[in-house]
Simulated scan of single mutants.
Amino acid sequence: MPNNKSAFAQVSDAFPMFGANIKRLWGTKDFTTYIKALLQDARDGSKTGFPEGVLSALIRLSDLHDRKFPELQPCIDNNENFKVVNEAFPRIGSKISACWGTAEFNPYISSLLHDSRGGNRKGFPFETLMALHALSEQHNKEYAQLYPLIDVWTQSDT
Rank of each mutant, 00 (worst) to 15 (best):
I109H: 03
K141Q: 14
S136M: 07
K83G: 02
N21K: 12
L129Q: 15
L55D: 14
G53K: 10
H65A: 15
T28Y: 08
N86E: 05
K68G: 02
H133I: 14
F50T: 09
N120F: 04
G27P: 04
W100H: 05
F105C: 12
A103V: 15
N79M: 02
F8A: 09
D151W: 09
L25V: 02
D13R: 14
N79C: 08
D77T: 03
R43S: 15
H133M: 08
D44L: 15
S6R: 05
S94I: 02
P148N: 07
P51N: 13
F8S: 04
I96V: 09
G53E: 11
S116P: 02
K5M: 12
H65D: 11
L135Y: 04
N106I: 15
G53W: 03
V11S: 01
R121H: 10
G45K: 10
A7P: 01
L55A: 14
K23W: 05
K122W: 09
A98T: 00
G53P: 00
L135W: 10
D30R: 09
G93I: 05
L25I: 04
K95M: 03
K68L: 06
P70D: 08
H139D: 04
Q40C: 05
L135P: 07
D30K: 13
S156Y: 02
G93M: 07
G53R: 02
R117V: 11
R60W: 09
H139I: 06
F69D: 10
K29S: 12
L113C: 01
L129I: 00
S97E: 05
F105T: 08
F126S: 00
P107A: 09
R43G: 15
T48Y: 12
G27V: 04
T102S: 06
T48D: 15
K29R: 15
N79R: 01
R24E: 14
S6A: 12
Y143S: 03
L39V: 15
P2Q: 04
Q145D: 13
R60K: 07
D151T: 00
S136Q: 04
E127Q: 05
I150G: 09
L72Q: 13
I109S: 03
T33S: 07
Q73I: 11
S97K: 13
R91I: 06
G45Q: 12
K23F: 11
N86R: 06
L61Y: 03
A14L: 02
F69E: 05
T128Y: 01
D41W: 08
L146Y: 04
P16D: 14
S56Y: 03
T154K: 09
Q138E: 15
M1V: 02
G119R: 02
N3G: 08
C99F: 08
L72G: 12
V84N: 11
P90A: 12
Y108Q: 08
F50W: 05
F8Q: 01
F18I: 14
I76G: 10
K68N: 00
T28I: 13
L112T: 00
